[in-house]
Design a protein around this nucleic acid. Structure first.
Length: 900
DNA sequence: CACGGCCATTCCGTATCATTGAC
DNA sequence: CGTCAATGATACGGAATGGCCGT
């Protein structure tokens, strides 16, 4: 049985715990490839043959041959491979093959030897002139391991970029604004000057377009209202901040730390002093009321608190998709049974133990219904009650919200300990459904200043550990039980610390600008390197650069099967002559990556080689490289360079290109739409998707129907005009044609039916309501005959429609009908149609693209700020409040000439 | 180990619809 | 009786948050 499993071509399940895909009964394709390559040249092939024989000899121990291997580059790879291969025996046999095709694995041996294949591939490959080989050889030897590695050491020093310093000179470190409102004066000023410079026309538009009026009408004076007016702005801002400074003395917000005006602290130390309140725990579990009991095999059962709690987690999901996910249920059930065992199991009403053996016999419904009722009760709370509850919550949270970081008040991010629950995972995570346990203070380590007072642990508990790690930015941590991952409590994204690293991230990306040409030149050249490893590396880097792929570390058996660049497998890439590549795989978070790209010829050729038989589904495309190899290469070309930097760089670069194409014309709304369009390009580049909501299609259909209904109404009105002025038809025949969407008799008839139905419902509803009222007033209900008479309009409608359908004419309706009146109504309908189609398009357009992620993480915020300044678009249109906070550094530090 | 990225979910304000009352 | 404004209820969609994922 196990042998048959070995033969399964599927990747999944054949991965070793370390994640390497294992080729069952197959030796390393890699080496063959390199042999082949080298074989193109007589001289080299000699070397290779040496290697190969060595390899054969040292097949399983593998590692050793590296040292004496002359072709150092390929050796490490084979080493890696060897260590993970399970079918050692087979390989050994295979490797006896004279052809040096260890692959052999009878399962998919190609008739043509791999050697031949590759040879031909590289032969028609004139990118690698023979004479060059000697030189290349040298090159490849040079950058061997250790020597290169030393370089990135300068990284730390280089990190404090000159840019940072230049920003520094503006103001000395300890400069503190005199009061809170002070901080927004500069903005106001900038804004003023900017908008003054910008066209007045724009401002007028703003006034007319902004949703402000509506809000104002509502009497909400909130600063949030996009009121572009300078004066209004300043005032509003102040209010806002006053509100935020919860404490009565508006003092505390005053010395907001403008790190971008300050000296950068270099080195590893993150703080000097640190005081905080620790973490907030979820409320303890409260037992369900006695009468709420789940059933097993029809018997109501009593559970220990923890077992009941876990059961409740499942009960809550009864109508969620998880409830029909076998794996989820299986994992849940296993963990739940463990809890049951530990807590004395389930008892019936007489205290007799009930054995829980089958999920199918569990009935969580009573619990589910109880939860649903609770939810509704909560929803039904009066506004005042809700407000009170909220205030109470906030009061409890208050101490955790902020910490003192080097004496400054900084916002804390996730101070709440994650509550227990069932692990959800993304995609087909093998651990989904497992019980995520409650975290107790004893498991928590606090990181806090030596001088600080340690926050008291919850009563009856103590903290697991207290440390004073000044090189760490976390305030607290614990280890979660599902994957054994460490969870950290850190500062909020709006904190100065995070702001600084955000800033550094973008500066790093901008630094790449200076190197990108050289980098591209070099990897392009390496695309035709004679060594497979180098080629694979170059190809991978090409993909990372062009298509913004992630690096793609190996993953373990107990993680979802998702891939990035280096972990792409055979089946993820399909080639289509002459140079189209179809990528289809699950990326981070199990998000589908499904794109067809045109690639460089050489890249296409390389991919074809990397897919050569005997590789098949389940095999690594880049079998000779790992992320560490590309990372080493990156670091050699620029300190701190990584695949992520490419993503940031390309995203921001794309945005800059798109924005610079734009002209300062049109309304604010149009400009905003254009911005979103650019944003969308970036999102697509980064493959930021969102799942179309389940409702999406039906909502679309509904909208479409509404639009058609409007068109029909319009058409009828036009017919009525004709009814009044038949002559008009000759004058403007186009005008009186029905929209083609509704040019369909069957549809019209259906629609008429629908209209009648709707009308009927409406009348019945009204009747019922009227009756209710009468009863409430102690009067008698109306009789059914009244309803019938009211419903008689329906038959009139029917008749009218029938008549219309026959005569193709519509009688003018309404009192004192006139052409003008009809035209007015038509205009209104046209407006509605316009609006609706616009909304539809927009919705469809962004239904599967998520703009947020790239806006938050990849597009240099300074680009957006510049955009707003240049085009007079209120920043609030682009950045909602939290983003304005997060990007304060960007908002306050650029003028409109700034470039990425 | 530590940190940033990233989608789904939840939260919350606004738009829209329905209802009522005044004119 | 129709219209319009005011008000209330609800649906909707963007913003904030949460917690899982990858490097």
């Amino acid at each position: 049985m196990s042998s048959s499993e070995d033969e399964m071509p599927l990747a999944r399940g054949r991965r070793k715990p370390n994640g390497r895909a294992v080729l069952p009964g197959k030796a390393d394709p890699v080496e063959d490839e390199s042999m082949d390559i080298d074989a193109t040249d007589g001289k080299v092939s000699k070397v290779i043959n040496g290697t190969s024989s060595k390899r054969k000899a040292a097949m399983k121990p593998a590692i050793k041959d590296e040292d004496d291997d002359e072709e150092s580059d390929s050796a490490p790879l084979s080493k890696r491979r060897r260590t993970t291969v399970n079918g050692t025996k087979k390989q050994l046999v295979d490797s006896d093959d004279e052809d040096d095709i260890p692959l052999s694995s009878s399962r998919r041996r190609s008739t043509k030897s791999m050697k031949e294949d590759s040879e031909s591939d590289f032969e028609d490959d004139d990118d690698v002139p023979l004479q060059k080989l000697a030189k290349d050889k040298k090159n490849t030897e040079k950058p061997t391991p250790k020597a290169a590695k030393a370089t990135p050491k300068g990284k730390q020093a280089a990190k404090a970029t000159p840019k940072t310093q230049s920003a520094t000179k503006r103001k000395p470190k300890d400069e503190t604004p005199s009061d809170a409102s002070d901080s927004d004066i500069p903005i106001a000023k900038q804004r003023k000057t900017a908008s003054a410079k910008k066209s007045k026309a724009v401002k007028n538009e703003e006034d007319s377009e902004e949703p402000t009026p509506a809000k104002a009408k509502k009497g909400k004076g909130k600063a949030e209202a996009p009121a572009p007016k300078k004066a209004a702005k300043g005032k509003a801002k102040k209010e806002e901040e006053a509100e935020e400074g919860a404490s009565p003395d508006g003092e505390e917000q005053t010395d907001e730390y403008k790190w971008w005006l300050a000296e950068q602290n270099d080195g590893n130390q993150k703080w000097e002093t640190l005081q905080h309140s620790g973490v907030m725990f979820p409320p303890p579990y409260e037992l369900l009321p006695k009468h709420i009991k789940m059933k097993y095999d029809g018997t109501p059962i009593t559970l220990a608190p923890e077992a009941e709690e876990v059961a409740g987690f499942m009960a809550a999901l009864l109508e969620a998709p998880q409830a029909s996910d076998k794996k989820f249920l299986e994992n849940f059930f296993a963990d739940w049974k463990t809890v049951l065992k530990e807590t004395g199991g389930a008892k019936d009403k007489d205290g007799k133990t009930v054995k829980i053996q089958s999920y199918d016999k569990c009935d969580f419904r009573p619990m589910f219904e109880h939860f649903t009722a609770l939810k509704e009760a909560k929803k039904a709370m009066s506004a005042a009650e809700k407000k009170e509850a909220k205030a109470e919550r906030e009061k409890i949270e208050e101490p955790y919200q902020y910490c003192q970081w080097d004496g400054r008040k900084e916002k804390v991010g996730n101070f709440r300990v994650e509550p227990p629950g069932l692990f959800r995972g993304r995609g087909e995570h093998p651990k989904r459904g497992m019980y995520k346990k409650r975290v107790y203070p004893e498991q928590i380590t606090l990181n806090i200043g030596k001088e600080a007072t340690v926050p008291p642990p919850p009563k009856g508990h103590k903290w697991g550990n207290i440390v004073h790690n000044q090189t760490a930015s976390w305030l607290a941590m614990w280890t979660e039980n599902i994957n054994g991952n460490v969870k950290y409590v850190m500062l909020a994204v709006t904190s100065s610390l995070k702001g600084q690293s955000d800033f550094k991230k973008y500066e790093k990306a901008r630094e790449l600008k200076k190197h990108i040409e050289k980098i591209r030149r070099e990897y392009t050249q390496e695309l035709s390197d004679k060594q497979t490893m180098v080629r694979q590396r170059a190809t991978a880097i090409y993909l990372i650069d062009k298509f913004a792929l992630r690096a793609g570390n190996e993953k373990g058996e107990d993680e979802a099967d998702t891939v990035g660049c280096c972990s792409l497998r055979y089946e993820h890439v399909t080639l289509e002559e002459p140079n189209l590549v179809h990528f289809k795989f699950l990326g981070k978070d199990s998000i589908q990556f499904d794109q067809v790209y045109t690639v460089d010829k050489q890249v296409f050729k390389n991919l074809r080689i990397f897919k050569k038989a005997p590789k098949g589904p389940g095999d690594d495309l880049f079998d000779r490289i790992q992320t560490k190899h590309i990372n080493e290469w990156f670091k050699d070309h620029m300190p701190g360079l990584s695949a992520k930097v490419f993503r940031t760089y390309n995203a921001s670069w794309t945005m800059q290109q798109e924005l610079s194409k734009m002209k300062n014309v049109g309304t604010v709304m149009e400009k905003h739409a254009a911005y979103n369009e650019a944003n969308k390009k970036v999102a697509i580049l980064c493959n930021h998707q969102r799942t179309k909501s389940k409702m999406h299609d039906s909502q679309m259909e509904k909208k479409m129907y509404e639009i058609k209904a409007l068109m029909y109404q319009k058409w009828r009105l036009k017919q009525m005009i004709l009814n009044l002025e038949p002559k008009l038809k000759k004058k403007k025949p186009e005008y009186f044609k029905p929209d083609e969407e509704i040019d369909d008799e069957d549809w019209i008839k259906e629609h008429q039916q629908w209209l009648i139905e709707e009308e009927k419902k409406k009348i019945e509803k009204k009747f019922a309501k009227d009756n209710e009222k009468l009863v409430a007033n102690g009067e008698k209900e109306m009789k059914a005959s009244e309803l019938n008479s009211r419903l008689s309009v329906l038959s009139d409608m029917k008749k009218d429609f029938a008549k219309e359908n026959k005569s193709k004419k519509v009688e003018a309706a309404g009192k004192s009908p006139s052409v003008e009146k009809f035209e007015e109504q038509i205009a209104k309908i046209d407006d509605k149609i316009q609006v609706k189609t616009g909304m539809m398009k927009d919705k469809e357009n962004t239904s599967e693209v998520s703009l947020g992620t790239s806006k938050i993480n990849y597009i240099d915020p300074r680009l957006s700020v510049v955009f707003c300044k240049k085009f007079g678009v209120p920043l609030e249109r682009i950045f909602p409040k939290t983003l304005r906070d997060k990007f304060k550094w960007a908002i306050e530090s650029v003028d409109e000439n700034w470039e990425f």
